[in-house]
Design a protein around this nucleic acid. Structure first.
Lengths: 336, 336
DNA sequence: CTGAAAGCGCTAACAG
DNA sequence: CTGTTAGCGCTTTCAG
């Protein structure tokens, strides 16, 4: 069946050499109009298209970007993936997906597989890399970009939003809103986003002479977030909760309203992080900090392309994320 | 940098031939324990791993599955993609993502690119293929599976849930619930899912001597769905609405409750389709038909693997999807 | 079981 | 501008 059409077939039919055919399909090679005509005609007639994999063998460029990602249920990632894939596609690259388990250990195996496919670069979303792995990638000469994860390693590029500032803004806002017993439902402590958001948040509380009233980690998991909410509100409930991302915040709000019968924000204010699409739906109307996924993707792609042509050094990019004021948290009284 | 380690390097170090090295990494080749030892030792020391792309050139198997998908914002698809990617990965395959535009025209270019990468198979999710394209893939000997789309073409495999039965069940349920003015907010009329769901739904109404009270197409788009809702409820509003998928149903419910001040289900019943995760969140608590994504993925993968080994013929698989009764629609009175 | 040789489909010097 | 000549890294007959 697969009557594979090769450059040789086209060459034969066009009465030229294989190289001529190759040149026609190589942007910026010099071919005469006449030859190009003949080759294109033959190629079209035969339905010929160059084999990207064979080409990659010699050019050393697969035009494949490996994406390592741990979960797709948090809407932030599908949004980013779609954008990423589209914009890479527009530049002639494509995304090969590798789902990582939550264990750091898995990452190792995944990276090996990625390398097997001779990917031109790796984007690690919501995943960190061990020192060892970083070394391996560096040795293989493959640029790595951490997406939405920061890491103190000069060999790694990263694109994150300013999670410290975001956390801080959230704290300032809650404090200004008159809250005095502020709880935190945290994500996974191994994540830089969690650490940064919390650090900024705590700094904000500290500046106001407050501390965290309660804190439970829920690992960015919905079930754990619900459980954490029940536990936190069992006795001496907070008057506001900072949930480490929107995804969990929705679950928290649901428990608050539908299980515990509390009104948001009248009884308790809730704020999240990410500003995924659902956050603006009126059913939740969640006050949150925006992580500009589109912008983050754009920077990621630009960064990658730059590193791929020249040998630009790795870069750590932080993008500001504005506070999005909505209805899930009491606002400060205007005593202006 | 990229000090590429080749089989030759390993061979040299192990004091064997390139072929010996190859055999060690080829499952089911015959190598002596002694040789294997030496090769593995050398390979480990050098960090050698076979180049999948080079291998594919000769075996004709890239172990890449091309996935063509149009949108990732409807949560049904990320869920499926994650599952798909994981289970393919477990079998040594990986997913190369191609985002398709909504225009059928785009599909053509995408398929060409897919073929350039010598993918072993193509999964088209929420996308249809023209006759021409189907022929091209068939000619190239590449199996195609339509995921969540049906098409009357024996050369194409497909995996769908039973959309006709689902639509029918929804209609029966709504009718039994005493509804007499039932509206439909449709998706995109070009989608088989839309056609089947609507056909089943209309059949159910018909059996009860009813017809659609109103119908507006919203192309699976949130903004259009909101607009359609406003329009449909402007005059002579329905007492129940069947929204073509959950994703739009959430938007519809939001407009109903927060803009129009209607109570769901007291003033109007709403039902959707898919049973994505959000449907079970108490804020929506949406009555819907379950599309068993996990099962659909499993069947898709099994189908693909079978076609990839032997030359099993294409297969059209339909999986039943049960009604999920929740709180967004009035239930029939128990007059038992 | 093992090595030598051939070649997958393509591009990149190199002469002409 | 064009064809010839070498391979890219790997697997696979084919002898031995």
């Amino acid at each position: 069946m697969g009557a594979r059409v090769t450059a040789q077939h086209v060459a034969d039919r066009a009465g030229v050499s294989r190289s001529a055919v190759s040149r026609v399909f190589t942007p910026g090679a010099s071919v005469s109009g006449r030859t190009e005509q003949k080759v294109r005609a033959a190629a079209d007639a035969l339905g010929y298209r160059p084999n990207v994999l064979a080409r990659s063998l010699i050019t050393g460029q697969s035009r494949i970007i490996g994406l390592m990602v741990a979960y797709l249920d948090n809407l932030f990632y599908p949004e980013a993936l779609e954008e990423l894939s589209r914009s890479l596609q527009a530049r002639g690259y494509h995304v090969l997906v590798f789902m990582a388990g939550n264990k750091a250990e898995d990452a190792s195996g995944i990276i090996e597989e990625l390398l097997d496919y001779q990917v031109d670069a790796i984007i690690a979303a919501s995943v960190s890399l061990s020192n060892d792995l970083t070394t391996r990638c560096a040795a293989a000469g493959i640029p790595v970009v951490l997406f939405n994860r920061g890491q103190d390693d000069g060999r790694l590029s990263s694109v994150t939003s300013d999670n410290v500032a975001g956390g801080r803004a959230l704290a300032d806002f809650l404090v200004a809103g008159g809250h005095r017993k502020i709880g935190h439902i945290a994500g996974w402590d191994g994540a830089s986003t969690q650490r940064d958001r919390e650090a900024g948040f705590r700094a904000g509380l500290h500046a106001a002479g407050q501390t965290l009233h309660a804190r439970i980690a829920a690992d960015f998991d919905l079930t754990k977030a619900r459980q954490a909410t029940r536990e936190m509100f069992r006795a001496d409930p907070p008057d506001a909760v900072f949930v480490a991302n929107d995804h969990m915040a929705f679950a928290v709000m649901d428990v608050l309203r539908f299980e515990l019968g509390l009104r948001v924000p009248d009884d308790v204010s809730v704020v999240g992080y990410d500003d995924v699409a659902i956050a603006s739906w009126p059913a939740y109307d969640l006050t949150t900090v925006r992580q500009p996924a589109r912008q983050m993707v754009r920077r990621t792609v630009d960064l990658l392309m730059a590193r791929l042509d020249g040998d630009r050094p790795p870069e750590q990019i932080t993008i500001p994320g504005p506070l999005r004021l909505r209805g899930s948290a009491k606002r400060p009284k205007d005593d202006a």
